[in-house]
């Protein structure tokens, strides 16, 4: 595989990882936290419902997990494609 193809494949994979990460990012905040809150309102969490928990706690915890996952995944991808820093 030429260097250019490798860079293209790397970028495509990166875009796919970003897209999925952002889907989850939107789902836990705009989704569970706001728009989908009525759908999960039946699940009770300490005096309120799961949507409230996602809006004030859960979304932040998922954001953290997403960033660390992305860093780990991309650093691995760098090495796989030989595009990491020396």
């Amino acid at each position: 595989m030429s260097e250019k193809d490798s860079a293209n494949a790397y970028w495509k994979t990166n875009l796919r990882i970003i897209t999925w990460s952002l889907v989850i990012w939107a789902l836990v905040s705009f989704g569970f936290g706001i728009l989908l809150r009525p759908l999960i309102a039946g699940i009770k969490v300490g005096g309120t419902d799961l949507g409230f928990w996602f809006a004030q706690q859960g979304s932040i915890l998922v954001f953290l997990a997403l960033i660390f996952f992305y860093a780990w995944r991309m650093n691995r991808l760098d090495r796989q494609h030989g595009l990491g820093e020396e």
Partner: peptide
């Protein structure tokens, strides 16, 4: 809650984009 989600969720954009 917008303040909580907004001011932390931006870091995901920052880190990924």
């Amino acid at each position: 809650s917008s303040f909580l989600m907004g001011w932390t969720g931006g870091y995901v954009l920052l880190a990924l984009l």
